[in-house]
Design a protein around this nucleic acid. Structure first.
Lengths: 125, 125
DNA sequence: TAATTATTATTACACGTGTAAACAATCCTG
DNA sequence: CAGGATTGTTTACACGTGTAATAATAATTA
């Protein structure tokens, strides 16, 4: 199977939009959805889309005058791929030290901590 | 206080070496320490060091003919900074979904899971 | 002190990315 | 059908990064 393409920071914003849709969407829909998320000119977004198509992260189907884009890679596999390279870079690949760092972060609420514990419980099953 | 500089992938390898030392080290020491970790010519490593100095991630002191480099930013704050931007990119900033993803990864051993649970316990204090 | 050697600084170059304008093709409207 | 509107394609350009060669400078040695 071919590799997961490397998706840049700006491109991720576009992918997130497309992933969140159940059906292929047009460039304009993406531009609109990005309103308030990123301050890009429509042309900029189009450039990002074009690059994503080129790196085979997005596919498209022609429909009348405009295209409809859809993901060729799942968000999940992209997350996994990014996480792996992130963990590799920062922690030399060891997952646990990274988790330890995160778990010690302030930002977690009581409830979230509970849920994380529950997830760990389940894992042992 | 000034911001954490953005450290690139290759530069991280250099920083990891410097962070791991208790005292400032020379360029050559860094080059040697990278042996087996990265396959870079000495000049390449020197370039990375120069850039790290320019972006104020490394400082140096002159000592006879050569310099000794030391970190100007702590590994911890860099990790935090990187993690934040990573979480932002991938998960829109929410820490918990990211952790859920990681905790569900295969790679964790029984023992590690135990330890993570323990850390969560402690957090509740 | 001149030559050699070690070390740092300057320069290079291609590719990815953020950012977008300009151009082209197509469709709707008058 | 011609002209404007819409949408996609091509081109642009500066900056960061990976990768390193070459030049300059300082120290050591003959």
């Amino acid at each position: 199977m071919s590799e997961i393409p490397k998706i840049s920071e700006a491109e991720w914003e576009v992918m997130k939009i497309v992933w969140s849709r159940t059906s292929p969407c047009t460039a304009n829909e993406i531009v609109n959805a990005l309103e308030g998320i990123a301050d890009w000119k429509p042309n900029t977004v189009k450039s990002l889309i074009t690059r994503l198509v080129k790196k085979q992260a997005l596919g498209y189907m022609e429909e009348r005058r405009n295209y409809r884009y859809y993901p060729l890679v799942s968000q999940d596999e992209c997350i996994r791929s990014e996480t792996k390279s992130f963990a590799k870079r920062i922690f030399g690949g060891a997952l646990k030290p990274m988790l330890v760092t995160f778990l010690q972060e302030e930002k977690l609420s009581e409830d979230e901590i509970e849920e994380l514990k529950r997830i760990l419980e389940e894992r042992k099953g």
